[in-house]
């Protein structure tokens, strides 16, 4: 039983209109309280994230300081990443029918997918018959 409701009602008993009205008022008030509380929490979390992004933009040097602090912590944990032995990655096996890997440079996967679809459409060639090596965003 919820802490809000002090006594539970008998679900098998018939309910008077006045009781129903009272319960309805309490019910809708609780719905509003819960959702307004969520609204405030969501706004607060949003403001915190927006604020931290803004701070990072205004003070890029803080990012460097944080990075150096992290590096120091790594040193104390004796997990210096630069000293770690480079591990050679085994070449990935390609799936059947694939045309190989595509390198994306400053380009999101969604945009790349759209570009490839447009190219395939304008060339009137199925996408699996085309080979894209890389897609790079050109900064103006």
């Amino acid at each position: 039983m919820s802490g809000f409701i002090l006594c539970a009602l008998d679900k098998e008993a018939k309910l008077g209109v006045v009781d129903a009205l009272l319960l309805a008022i309490i019910g809708i008030v609780i719905v509003f309280i819960v959702l307004i509380a969520l609204m405030l929490l969501v706004s607060l979390v949003g403001k915190i994230f927006d604020g931290s992004e803004k701070l990072q933009k205004e003070h890029p040097e803080w990012g460097e300081k944080i990075a150096s602090c992290k590096a120091k912590l790594m040193f104390w944990k004796k997990e210096k990443p630069e000293e770690a032995a480079p591990v050679e990655e085994a070449p990935k096996e390609l799936a059947k029918g694939t045309c190989g890997e595509l390198t994306l440079i400053n380009c999101e996967e969604r945009d790349a997918a759209m570009i490839m679809a447009i190219v395939a459409d304008s060339l009137n060639t199925p996408l699996n018959e085309l080979r894209f090596k890389s897609i790079k965003r050109v900064e103006e």
Binding site: F4, L23, G27, I30, V34, L35
Partner: peptide, 10 residues
């Protein structure tokens, strides 16, 4: 939430 309230009551 509305269902939760009704469940809590009945």
């Amino acid at each position: 939430v509305a269902a939760g309230f009704l469940l809590a009551v009945f």
